[in-house]
Design a protein around this nucleic acid. Sequence first.
DNA 1: GGGAGAAAAAATGAAAGAATTTATAGTAGA
DNA 2: TCTACTATAAATTCTTTCATTTTTTCTCCC
Lengths: 227, 227
Amino acid sequence: MGKIEYFQQIPLFTGLKVNELEKITGYFHEKEYKKGEYIFFEGDEEPGIYIILEGLVKLIKETTDGKTVIVRLATKGDVFGWLVLGENRPSSTYTAQSLTNAKVLHISNTDFLRLLTEYPALAVRITCEATKMVLEAYERLKSLAAEKVEGRIASILLELARKIGKEDGDKIVIKAPITRQDLAEMTGTTVETAIRIMSKWKKEGFINTERNKIEILDMDFLEDLIS
Amino acid sequence: MGKIEYFQQIPLFTGLKVNELEKITGYFHEKEYKKGEYIFFEGDEEPGIYIILEGLVKLIKETTDGKTVIVRLATKGDVFGWLVLGENRPSSTYTAQSLTNAKVLHISNTDFLRLLTEYPALAVRITCEATKMVLEAYERLKSLAAEKVEGRIASILLELARKIGKEDGDKIVIKAPITRQDLAEMTGTTVETAIRIMSKWKKEGFINTERNKIEILDMDFLEDLIS
DNA sequence: GGGAGAAAAAATGAAAGAATTTATAGTAGA
DNA sequence: TCTACTATAAATTCTTTCATTTTTTCTCCC
């Protein structure tokens, strides 16, 4: 597949003209990361901007006492990295770690800023992406603030289903190496609690779990758990 | 003060040239809201975009079982409203309610989209604003996920201090009608718990509270509470 | 302008409930 | 085999829930 066709499939670049895309592509560099590898760290200066072509990346923040919080799970087509442009906030406020082997496009902050002013359509698109991130974060805030652990885990499972789930008959298959630890770090609880809830639901037949896979057998059950 | 000078003070418009500003101002309309008044509701279609000139606005989400969560507190210079442009997400995902009497600038979605493509500098600025919202939301996510109630309330007090606090000798004065209920809705706890913690801290001399005012007497104490 | 009554906000205690902590053990990939 | 992940249980801690009281603010009326 040509580079242009490749780029056209990325949400951030929809609406851009082919001749614009041709000029833009040169600024991006493809990079690959192994499962578990870190892409950049909280505090890194100017990590640049990343677009996921393939794979799953978790964006995490750590507290001073060593707790880890996953603030976002970025998947194919998603944008992450340092987006505060023209601000004196020089360093990343989160760490990016690949959850699977991953392929990404990378661009430096300065190059991206240059593109932004040159291609207004791109600026509109990135605004749109940023807004989606805000609304998604607000949804998570609501879940964390208003729901008990079961509701929060149900929320996250449904979010995962929406983002990376594949329908297979009656069930939705989430094929990704997401551990109970990850679920706990997304929902603000402990591994033990995440394990207890997941295994209870498995026993009760609402979900099924295997290595690197979570199947949702009863969506309605999960939806009803959310207040 | 002329309209142009007025606009130049708004963060969203910094970096725009005077002749650009002159053209832009016409698209914005000034509106005023009384304390407690709703600006728009979750589900409203195309509420447009608002910039706060004066006052404090809370952005809230409600759960199906009636709980309210304050996802953001917007203050002077902040932008809020429907920002997903060119997307098929036609309605607001949160409610905006003024916490004080407020003065805002308003622009319709379509007008704003027009401005964006016409003035790339504005697009860069709005991207920047959106990113700040994301990072702020992630900070809150971390707090909600990793900290106990005391730490969460401490976090919010420090956030308020940073946003709207005024130094007065050793203390920081937060002059705003923020109730314990509001604090609870920002930190995902109950009024009773918020009241208990605030009055305990008051007794212990770390904070002082009066009608429409919270004073932080010991920043270090609050900072130490945050993990 | 002041006072009465209503409404809203703050305060507090006891009991119940939810989730964490701590501990221990089994399982499956690498 | 070793490490990371999953599993389960009991005790403890934190927070909520429910019930009641006090304090403050608002508003209407004289």
